[in-house]
Design a protein around this nucleic acid. Sequence first.
RNA 1: GGGGACGUAGCCCAACGGCAGAGGCACACGGCUUAGAACCGUGACAGUGUGGGUUCGAAUCCCACCGUCCCCA
Length: 842
Amino acid sequence: MPKYDHLTIEPKWQAFWEEKQSFKTPESLSGPKYYVLDMFPYPSGSGLHVGHPEGYTATDIVARYKRANGFNVLHPMGWDAFGLPAEQFAIKTGTHPAITTAQNVANFKRQLKSLGFSYDWEREVNTTDPDYYKWTQWIFLQLYKKGLAYIAEVPVNWCPALGTVLANEEVIDGKSERGDHPVIRQPMSQWVLAITKYADRLIEDLELVDWPAGVKKKQVEWIGRSRGCDIVFSLPGRDETIRVFTTRPDTLFGATYMVLAPEHPLVDLLTPDEHKDAVKAYRDQAARKSDLDRTEKAKDKTGVPIGANAINPATGKEIPIWIADYVLMSYGTGAIMAVPGHDTRDWEFADRFEIPIVEVVSGGDVTKEAYIGDGLIVNSDFLNGLNVADAKEKMINWLEERGTGKAAINYKLRDWLFSRQRYWGEPFPIRFDEEGNHHALPEDQLPLLLPEVEDYSPPQGDDPQPTLNKATDWVNFKEDGKSWRYETNTMPQWAGSCWYYLRYIDPKNGDKAWDLEKEKYWMPVDLYIGGAEHAVLHLLYARFWHKVLYDAGLVSTKEPFTKLVNQGLITAQSYRGKDGYVHADLVDETKPGTFVNRETGEELEAQIEKMAKSKGNVVSPDVIVAQYGADSFRLYEMFMGPLEQSKPWNTQSIEGVRRFLERTWRLVLDTENDNLNAALVDGWGNDQQLIKEAHKTIKGVTGDIEGIRFNTAISKMMVLVNSLTKAKQKPRDIINRLLILLNPFAPHICEELWDRLGHDTPITAETWPTFEEELTKEELIQMVVQVNGKKRDTLEMAADTDKDSALAQAKALDKIAGYLDGAQIIKEIFVPGRLINFVVRK
RNA sequence: GGGGACGUAGCCCAACGGCAGAGGCACACGGCUUAGAACCGUGACAGUGUGGGUUCGAAUCCCACCGUCCCCA
């Protein structure tokens, strides 16, 4: 094997690592530890694309680096395998989702293994495995017992034409994805988790973690905590009242109407007969819209008056009550006081329906648009002359004294709707008695297995029903002479991913979800890498469960993930013609920048986009690994640019890193005859410059890995390899160290060369090299000498030259002296090792 | 519609506020070669999207605009 042949080397070392269990997690629970985690994938039918391994390569580099630095490393992988695609495939073909899932997992695993990742596969988890979801059910019971899981009537996407409940992904613009039938929102009994009880802690504890500022911000905004006031509006001639939440109690005098959500329970009661038809028609119409259509997308506000009034507690006047779909039942109390002068949506509504608009904060022109800003309060009796902030306080006090309102905090975050009407999810460990009361399933009956069904689509009929209702033999059972019924909703896909990082710690424990001692050692996750698309939901849900477990004494840390990094998207050029996307394989570049469809000759528009099957721009790692090898692939993905940044894939550029590996290969081996390179010499050699460069490289690469700057780390190793290529003598002590540095990035070739160099133990067992600080510094440096910020000369001097001496030397330079002659020096700037700048005035 | 990230050479990207260049792709030339490939060597190419501001000094900090991508969906 004279030449670098990845097809031989890579499988050889993968088999070696597997046989030797090189990456088995140490059992020891003492000494420094490092837990480095990937967001585990959903094993789809189409396999990995080159975007997946970007994050996995990054974590693998860190894992291998930390092992070499003496850490006990936990670096696991698993499968988030419940989910819609397998179920939809099952509905179409009748194949059990477990079978599809097993096939997809096998394919993903093959692909991951082909890339040489150092996962401890003994710790693999699969959320669909009963041994795993047993504990997902168990954690649900912990929430249930603490009163954090409750049943509520919540609307589902109900498609009468299909007679089935649809997932959000199956609804597009209010129509079913299949068949394009109308979808309405119909209430159904469902489990809800009380995440809002943790809202404040989910905000506050973000201070404890090292996460991208953008992710923290998104979480805070998602939780949407706002301070304001609950106000009670009384109804003339009735005992009932309407409670609203507002962040602007200062504008109460300007509230000229009220709006209830169409679903609001008081609507039926308050609507007089002559308005009932109009109200019913409007409610039916609103049920067909998603929340998004009702709020964000709505251009024209709609609504109808219900024919009843409420009393504004500030003015004492009656104001009309409307229903309108821009008010959601799920936010606040499902009712608002409308202040058209100072709220944009209220203004648009009032403008359209000719409802009076009253200015109560000065500074704008409320006849033209709502004025949101600060200003002095007007037309508001005892608030007049105050600014907005003071008026808020005074109004809250006034309302509290009169018992018609109080300060309140509201969240945009809703409690977590935890039921799905699907087959392929965790069954709830809940049973109902004959009276319909729910009870926890005894823990010794876990796991509650998914029953077999004949087909996997939800039952069709006149009412929404979960799929498991079809499993009638399973649903109803007798125990101790009583009739029972299992819960037939299943849990959402988020459930399994809320705690998988804990199961990795103790994945085979049959008695407990995890051992507390092991948890204490390994937690928290030190580094968590995954896509930015999980910035809110997955991370928020997992943090919520973690806090519940923390309160129960089951985990030892408040937060699960100490440092979070989002890898950037790997994008690729896609091509679009008048009939849609054309697969990249069918496109020719006839001249630079001109792309044509090879078959039709049509000129195509090229753009760089996220990879997607539908866009025909997906690149599979299988092809790249076969052609260039896993090492080149890993190296290229890291060399493309900063990890967090999105970067365009360009297969041609892999050539560069491949050549780098081939040059590294030739440092060690003679490609003509398979002997070691004759230029190899023992020790460090006698080229002082080269020795210095080696020390600098060790320092630089180490710092770059610590800072997750893999692209510049690779560049530094390329520099060293280029120097070694030029050097007449190739010192083994330098090459050995180079290989250890390169090993986390390109482990197969390093293991092979290490072996060829005659080492008895594998490079994966080696210790990270150290460097001498003294040898990383240059003795002589080039100083730039500027006058008024313009470079006028350079000056070579010892690196440790002090300011006075350096300035004196600079002034003595002929060119500089010319500029200083007859001028007044206002300022002398000395940047050690960099430059000198004289600021002068003539 | 809202939010975020990013605009540096033909392309991907480097550059604690201090001489715009680490590395790579592509390109050109030279060496090696019967020739080509591979390999080795050499070198040409930008003043940092635009306009302001702060500073002795701005690719870097601030403001506005333009463009691209991503997220909310």
